[in-house]
Design a protein around this nucleic acid. Structure first.
Lengths: 194, 194, 194, 194
DNA sequence: CATGAATGAGAGTTCATTCAT
DNA sequence: CATGAATGAACTCTCATTCAT
């Protein structure tokens, strides 16, 4: 009784996720360039050969990881739900973001590490990502304007720098960094009820 | 007749700098782990073998670069000159920092890239660096207090996140980022004359 | 469909033996330290990389060879069969030993060469080898006493020196050395019927 | 005031000996193939470059060492003094030999190690060495005949094997081997007064 | 769909040797 | 005569990738 197409698809997706998880775990502990395909395969519990049924090459695997991280991170702001409706919505999204950083340090660690690499610039500059960015900018601009800021663009830059800065510090040395200082600061400054 | 001690010293220094420059150039364009000794040697115009007269191993070369970057960056704030005396001094130091980021993007790119790597944690946690950090914290704390901030520690965190965040963004995509927004914001907020 | 465990095992054993044979052949013709992994791989008809699937390192390969030679040589005296029962048994064992030297000059050449190297002392001093040596001493002591020798320990030393000396000479220049002179001398002196 | 030709010659010889001694010291502790020219130069207190004023290559240095060892060893028997005149003379020469082994374990260790190497066969087979060997054989044959041995050739083989065997054992593990057992045995058997 | 033996290019590293000084 | 910076070939070893099974 051969497996149905559907079952196969399911198995494939599970395997793919297995491999991705294994890779992410190892990448978070060591420079991806120093993690061998063999180690990932072992960690994922599959054979070396099988890796290439799911990922064309090591480079592709790395890029897919960055994309997945990006998707995950972007989804936090729930851009699909439309613009930030009000200050409460804004504060909730900020909380979701900071919670995510705190609870998914592995994801963020890999994401930061990989994004720092010049070779990943093309991922960063892909249409898909750029579009997301623009959406994010537009919605935030709208919100900042509503909040009465004189120079919304400036505030977006400041807020972005704050978030990126504290995240980078946090993944580098989570034991020394308290995310809440910045979290609260952002909520105070940008999430005030009118 | 053999070269004098002096002549040898001079040659060695020149060669060492040559290699360092080549390595930094390449590291800024590609993940250091993926830059081979052969490539660095070629870029520096020396033989592969000679690399090992000047650097015990690739790892040592990498670490020396991080340390050098760190020294350079730390020296910007001129902690040796003592605490920030007044707002003007503060603003000058901030300017020096931002100028440095802008003019030494290579240094900052490598520095950020390497520091993101788990294996570099030990460099970051070395006594020398930690001591510098503490100095920096202490002097800034003093300054923030003088400026009349209620919660100086919080302000240090915020300012640090801002600087790190904008720097990371800048080295990732200098063509899209305008450092001056954050530079002026910091000078406005923290560098006001009393 | 993947190969069965059994098939893999078989392949691995064959390959391992192939490599061992190649290494021994080359080691017998040249100082092992001067025989490169590449040469061994070529002689064995496998790729350089594959060598490391079977032997962790060159050092491991060398040591495995010494151990194998040692086992082979030790097994000649068939210590497991118990003490030398009588003069005929003694003579038979001596013959087996000399036949082995004559027919396995490669083994003996490597063995002698490697054992001369200071770094191999640890192999020589391993518990397993030392135990075998003691067994050998004990059994020979018993036999020499039975044969009526006044100073059995002395005879053991003399006989050992004779065997080692002629073996070393033989592997150095087999075309000049006639093993039988010493073989017969030992059988005459120590293998007389009571 | 330039050095005279004579002084230069003296300096050269001293330097040469310096290098030789350094090399022998290191070779006795490590497989010659693993001792670098740099290490020898350092041990000898000269520059790497100078090594090549005295020895054409590493190989030549090694061969010169074997030759020197051989000369030293051969001189012990004082073949130049002519045949063994009587049993006392024989016993004295045997004593000189065993004393030398005991007091110059470094020399013997290198000598044995190097002679075991197939590449050194040519040294062993050189006319000079072969001639020495023949002299030794002839003189010993004469002596053994005088001593009344029926088969002098056989006795020469036996004695040679004994000496080589115990020497090899001694340099391999001096702490376990008592040279005197064989020394006395040889003097007893072959050095009896008629 | 799954395996892991096998490959080969290239990595880091060492070292005998050369040669400008 | 003496130095040691410099070279380049060769070394040990790793690893992404392939493919027979």
């Amino acid at each position: 009784m051969p497996r149905t197409e559907e079952q196969n698809e399911k198995i494939k997706n599970e395997r793919k996720q297995q491999i991705l998880n294994a890779a992410m775990l190892l990448f978070s502990k060591q420079n991806p360039a120093e993690v061998s395909i063999a180690k990932i395969a072992k960690e994922a519990g599959v054979s070396k050969g099988l890796m290439y049924s799911y990922y064309e090459s090591k480079e592709h695997l790395q890029k897919e990881i960055v994309f997945q991280c990006m998707d995950e991170i972007m989804s936090i702001f729930q851009m699909d739900k439309g613009a930030f409706v009000d200050a409460q919505d804004f504060r909730e999204r900020i909380d979701r973001l900071f919670d995510h950083v705190q609870n998914n340090i592995t994801t963020w660690s890999i994401y930061t590490q990989l994004l720092m690499q010049p070779s990943m610039k093309e991922v960063f500059m892909s249409p898909k990502v750029l579009e997301m960015m623009e959406d994010y900018q537009r919605q935030l601009y709208q919100y900042m304007t509503n909040q009465g800021f004189e120079d919304p663009e400036k505030e977006i830059v400041i807020m972005g720098a704050l978030i990126d800065g504290i995240s980078v510090q946090y993944v580098s040395a989570p034991e020394f960094i308290d995310l809440n200082v910045v979290r609260n600061h952002i909520k105070d400054v940008y999430g005030k009820e009118n």
